[in-house]
């Protein structure tokens, strides 16, 4: 708060360049104007659409393959080298390749976002299944659980906490890449708005858009936390054994 006030005063007194660091009040006014004119709403719509398409596609794939890799050591042996090779690549560096493969339209953007969202969920879901302890498997097996029921009643709930952590990592990584892709190659969206504002030196607009991106990030994380509370109502105890 104090920093904001200092910033405001410094900008008004011309101690810092208002061109690069416009006063917070000016940014807020611009934010409001852009909101009213609808341009921020439209840009946010584009960004959210790409983000959710990529998240859904990459996340779902990561989840399913993660369950498979956690469950079957054969699948793990098959996929692990590929994951180890592709995962550390900065996904943005793949943009040219993706553009070649999928063209310059929306498709390539979504593919890149999906690729980004894919790995954290894949890795966390695999870990989530693998950390299920031997005794849990033993009890489930002893009482005859297999196939779909084993998945639904044991494997899924047991790995859910790590899956949700993975979902959060995927979400944040995907948001970063969405904005970055828009900066690099889009006409619409929050990233594109920032780039345009920068190129035309309308820095208030740039800051106003940054506020929106921060809000999108905060709100989507909040949604995930809510989801977590909804899906895991219980308090977890690692050892629910009888030693009272």
């Amino acid at each position: 708060m104090a920093a904001l006030v200092a910033w405001e005063l410094a900008a008004r007194a011309d101690m810092i360049s208002p061109l690069f660091f416009p006063a917070p009040s000016a940014i807020l006014a611009t934010f409001w104007r852009m909101l009213i004119r609808g341009e921020l709403v439209v840009a946010t719509g584009y960004t959210l659409a790409r983000l959710s398409a990529g998240l859904l596609l990459g996340g779902a794939l990561g989840l399913v393959l993660g369950l498979l890799m956690g469950w079957s050591s054969a699948a793990r042996a098959l996929a692990e080298p590929v994951v180890a090779a592709v995962h550390p690549l900065p996904k943005l560096a793949l943009l040219p390749l993706v553009l070649i493969l999928f063209g310059i339209g929306e498709q390539s953007k979504v593919v890149l976002i999906a690729l980004t969202a894919f790995f954290p969920l894949l890795i966390n879901t695999t870990a989530g299944v693998r950390q299920i302890d031997a005794h849990t498997w033993e009890v489930a097996r002893h009482y005859g659980a297999r196939g779909w029921m084993l998945l639904r009643r044991v494997v899924w709930p047991a790995s859910l906490p790590l899956v949700l952590t993975g979902a959060q990592l995927s979400l944040n990584a995907a948001l970063v890449v969405t904005v970055a892709v828009e900066l690099l190659s889009a006409q619409q969206g929050l990233g594109a708005t920032i780039w345009l504002a920068w190129q035309t030196l309308r820095t208030e607009e740039m800051y106003a858009t940054l506020i929106v991106i921060a809000l999108v990030g905060m709100l989507s994380n909040l949604v995930l936390v809510r989801l977590e509370h909804r899906l895991i109502p219980r308090k977890r105890k690692d050892e629910s054994d009888g030693r009272a």
Binding site: T136, V139, A158, R234, R236, S240, D241, G242
Partner: peptide, 15 residues
């Protein structure tokens, strides 16, 4: 049909 009561109960905490 064999049913075992495990020494540590072994209930599923999510059920």
């Amino acid at each position: 049909q064999i049913a075992m009561v495990f020494q540590d109960a072994g209930l599923f905490p999510w059920l």
